[in-house]
Deep mutational scan, measured.
Amino acid sequence: MSIQHFRVALIPFFAAFCLPVFAHPETLVKVKDAEDQLGARVGYIELDLNSGKILESFRPEERFPMMSTFKVLLCGAVLSRVDAGQEQLGRRIHYSQNDLVEYSPVTEKHLTDGMTVRELCSAAITMSDNTAANLLLTTIGGPKELTAFLHNMGDHVTRLDRWEPELNEAIPNDERDTTMPAAMATTLRKLLTGELLTLASRQQLIDWMEADKVAGPLLRSALPAGWFIADKSGAGERGSRGIIAALGPDGKPSRIVVIYTTGSQATMDERNRQIAEIGASLIKHW
């Protein structure tokens, strides 16, 4: 067993022997301040990774656009098919120029040779490549099948209805392509620590998230040296922004954090800054 596999296998073990965790309302004060600064709703939840206990939450059962955070769930569904012998990570998928959609920095470079399922998941999570996500959605049967996968996990809230990039439209009061912070946090925890996926697939999923290259201005910008984070960000229309993450000190994750916002007129930089400040408060009061 590799060191990384050992780390993920012992996530519940280490967490069980940690000192009790206590909620700190100071972080919620910052979440509410972010709402004021952005002029928009902000949803927040913080779960203990081992027990699933909610440590703090704000608007945990209000719907927010998922945006690209759905790509972690998508690759979880792909990995479940791999575990069941219905898919192979090494299978190569070929596609054409007509398949390319807006923001496809990886797939646009491989029109000639195609990409493997493993490479597509890596591109979808680490670079948020939209064509990679659409190609992977095709392998599982489309958005409705991802929703069905989530329902089978016990998540009857999260739903995907459309493809990239239309799913980022974020129309107010439109339930399409949305989740709730509580539902997303619980589902992410199941994917990373539950028995739904094999140990190898859980490790692969967290490795992809740990290698995320496009979430630097968010929670990662607030992390002290030595902290662990595996995350996936999302951005959408109407001032929408979000991030889902597993993080913790001492090089291992111990909490799940989900943050979503929508309806702001603020710039992307300002949305990023507010999420980073929430992260800084979380870490300060850990």
Rank of each mutant, 00 (worst) to 15 (best):
H24D: 13
A225F: 10
S68T: 00
R92H: 10
P181H: 00
S254H: 14
A280E: 15
L47C: 09
M115Y: 03
Q203V: 15
G279Y: 03
D161E: 08
S96W: 12
L19V: 15
L160K: 02
A222P: 09
F228Q: 06
P181D: 00
N272H: 04
T139V: 15
A266E: 12
A222E: 13
N173R: 13
Q37M: 14
E87K: 02
F22K: 09
I3N: 13
T198C: 10
F58Y: 15
F64S: 01
L197E: 04
T107Y: 01
W227I: 02
L28T: 09
K252Q: 14
R220V: 03
A222C: 15
D250Q: 15
G39A: 13
A77R: 09
E56T: 11
S264C: 10
Q265R: 13
A15S: 15
M153S: 13
N173Q: 15
D269F: 11
G279I: 04
E62F: 07
N168K: 02
R159A: 06
D36C: 15
L188T: 09
K232Q: 00
G242Q: 02
E210V: 14
G141Q: 07
S96E: 12
L205C: 03
L160P: 04
T147D: 09
T158P: 00
H5C: 09
G52T: 05
V31T: 06
N173G: 14
T139D: 11
S80N: 12
V101W: 06
G216V: 07
G154W: 04
Y44V: 07
I140W: 03
A183H: 12
A124C: 08
S240W: 01
Q86L: 13
P20D: 15
R81G: 06
A245S: 10
R63C: 07
A185V: 06
Q37C: 11
T186Q: 13
A235H: 02
L55N: 07
L282P: 00
W286V: 02
M180K: 14
M1H: 01
D113F: 07
L196W: 14
E166H: 10
P172F: 09
E119C: 04
A235R: 02
G90E: 15
L146Y: 06
A9Q: 08
S264E: 04
M153D: 04
R159C: 06
N272C: 04
R271H: 07
A16M: 15
T138Y: 13
R81N: 13
A185E: 00
K190S: 13
P172W: 09
G226H: 11
I11M: 11
Q88M: 11
G194P: 10
F64M: 07
S122I: 14
M127E: 14
V8P: 11
H94R: 13
S57Q: 13
V78A: 06
I45F: 12
H94I: 15
R241W: 02
M115K: 03
T107W: 01
F70I: 06
P224D: 06
L219M: 09
L282G: 03
L79E: 02
L136P: 00
E61V: 11
Q97P: 14
E46F: 08
A246K: 03
H110G: 08
E169A: 13
G142D: 05
D48S: 08
N50S: 13
E166V: 12
F58R: 09
R273Q: 10
L167T: 08
V78F: 04
D231G: 04
I11Q: 05
T138H: 14
A9I: 13
A183E: 12
R273K: 15
S240V: 02
I171R: 12
G251R: 11
R273I: 10
P253L: 10
I244V: 13
V29R: 08
D161K: 03
G76Y: 05
I140N: 04
A235C: 04
F228P: 01
A23S: 07
R118M: 10
V106E: 14
R189S: 13
L218H: 03
G90N: 13
C18R: 01
D155P: 01
L192K: 01
D231N: 05
T27A: 06
D48K: 04
A77F: 10
R202C: 06
L47V: 13
F13A: 14
A215V: 04
E119S: 09
P165N: 08
V157R: 12
L192H: 04
G52S: 07
L28G: 08
V101L: 08
I11D: 02
D250R: 14
W163L: 13
A123E: 04
A182W: 13
M115V: 06
A34Q: 09
H151L: 14
G216C: 08
S254G: 12
K213P: 04
P217I: 06
M180P: 03
I11F: 12
Q204L: 15
W286R: 02
S2M: 12
D83N: 05
V157E: 12
K252R: 13
M209F: 03
V157L: 10
Q204I: 10
R255L: 05
L282R: 01
M209I: 02
T198A: 11
V78I: 10
D212E: 04
R91H: 10
N98M: 11
L192D: 01
V82L: 05
S264L: 04
E61D: 15
P20Q: 15
E56C: 08
S68A: 00
V106R: 07
Q88I: 11
K232M: 00
T262H: 14
F6S: 08
P143C: 06
T187N: 11
L219H: 03
K109M: 14
P20G: 06
E87H: 04
F14I: 13
V42W: 09
M209S: 02
E119I: 01
A84N: 15
A280L: 11
R238F: 14
E210R: 10
I125G: 01
R41F: 08
T179W: 00
Q88P: 05
P143N: 04
L111D: 07
A211S: 13
G142A: 04
T147F: 02
D83K: 04
A77E: 09
L73D: 04
R202Y: 05
F70S: 08
M127V: 13
S80Y: 14
L282Y: 03
L111G: 06
W208A: 03
L223I: 12
T107Q: 01
D83A: 05
L192C: 08
S2F: 11
I171T: 14
R273S: 10
V78H: 03
L219Y: 03
T178E: 02
L196N: 15
E166W: 15
A245D: 00
L19Y: 15
Q97K: 14
R91V: 05
D48M: 06
E61S: 12
R81T: 07
G194Y: 08
T198N: 12
D161C: 06
L74N: 01
L19Q: 15
T116L: 08
A215K: 05
V258S: 04
L55H: 08
A230S: 06
I244Q: 01
V8K: 15
T178A: 05
N130P: 00
A280T: 11
W227T: 02
H285P: 02
K53L: 13
D129Y: 00
R118Y: 15
P20F: 03
V82G: 05
F14Y: 09
I229K: 02
H24F: 10
Q37S: 14
D161M: 05
T139K: 08
G279N: 03
A280P: 01
W163C: 11
S122C: 08
L47A: 09
L192F: 12
R202V: 08
E26K: 13
A246S: 09
M184T: 03
R220S: 04
G194F: 09
R220E: 03
W286L: 04
H285F: 15
P25L: 10
D161N: 08
I171E: 15
S281H: 12
G242V: 01
D155S: 02
M127Y: 11
F13L: 12
P12Y: 13
A222G: 11
H151S: 09
N168F: 03
V117D: 00
T158N: 01
M268A: 09
V29S: 10
I125A: 04
T178N: 03
P217K: 15
R241D: 02
A246N: 05
M66Q: 06
F13W: 11
I125F: 02
S2E: 05
I244T: 06
L137E: 04
S68V: 00
P65G: 03
H94M: 14
P12D: 07
L10R: 05
M127S: 08
F64A: 01
A185N: 00
I229F: 04
A280H: 14
E62C: 07
H110K: 13
A16H: 15
